[in-house]
Nucleic acid binder design. Sequence first.
DNA 1: TGTTTGGTTCTGAAGTAAACGAACTAAATT
DNA 2: AATTTAGTTCGTTTACTTCAGAACCAAACA
Lengths: 170, 170
Amino acid sequence: MITEEELIKEKLALVEELGVHFECSDNLTPLASRIVVYLILTGIKGATFEELVEKLEASKSSISTNLQLLQSNGRITYYTKSGDRKRYFKITPDHIISRLDEKIDLWKKEMKNHQKILAYNQKVLQSKHANEGNHLNVQFSEQYIEFINKMIINLTQLKQNILTITNQNQ
Amino acid sequence: MITEEELIKEKLALVEELGVHFECSDNLTPLASRIVVYLILTGIKGATFEELVEKLEASKSSISTNLQLLQSNGRITYYTKSGDRKRYFKITPDHIISRLDEKIDLWKKEMKNHQKILAYNQKVLQSKHANEGNHLNVQFSEQYIEFINKMIINLTQLKQNILTITNQNQ
DNA sequence: TGTTTGGTTCTGAAGTAAACGAACTAAATT
DNA sequence: AATTTAGTTCGTTTACTTCAGAACCAAACA
């Protein structure tokens, strides 16, 4: 049997270890990503403001600012208990879906940009006696747009799958 | 018919417009992402150090540093012409594939992290009289890992498709 | 051999961002 | 009414980033 203390220690170790990943992959500040990892590991029971200040050894102001940030971009929410003034912060239950939506949006943006690049390349191709290079550029752009399209379709499909899975399990 | 000058103007406008996107989505410095966009728009003929200094209105030192950075992470390469000391920088031809590889690596990393999270959740579940919350946490982790797995499979398949397409067109 | 070309490297200055402390507030408690 | 609780807001500090300027270097040229 593992003691409570050992588990807490392990949790904080994981916060440090995994924090870095969320920091780069989701563009979060160090503290914000530590909060996210801590809340992921804490699960649905959530953690209070106070607990975060203590365990992550950060100031109230930093915790406050970062909690607001994470709430505003939909990564976390809180619930309250009656007869208890504290807020219990937790990862938003459907955060898989919202992360997927973010990814999809990013690829859509990339799609738009590469359509602009394609348009430019086509203009260049028509402007002067078409040289071989310009022709290849157009082909390349078309191919890349095709790739992005597939990417978006894949992600959308995946999202649909997950939605059906989660609905089944409810 | 569009003049050469108009095209250059349009290119530089696109550099400004699209630069921002690459800046956040790929975590590049402003100048680095402007270089990337410029080189994408310039295509396979590439651009010289000098041209970049002039057109992007940046110092030699900044261009130098950022070119090295972009080379070291594999986004750009250069070729030389005999009887010409200049280097011609261009986007690495297979950058679709390498970007895909990067994405795949990121998801693999996320997989590893969530396996750690799952392991932790299972420990918690076994440590004390299992409460309902801990049980849900484990389920959730398992589901998420399943999702990441699908994501990786999808991306790998996509990469394979693109590889066959590009091989056909060669 | 000295000079030009095509860069690189090393400071340094300006700007940016993360986290903090202190003062503040609104609701609940005594 | 005064105090405690649970947080927020604001201004500042500190660390880090980005870019530029100047000095530097290696290869080619004259």
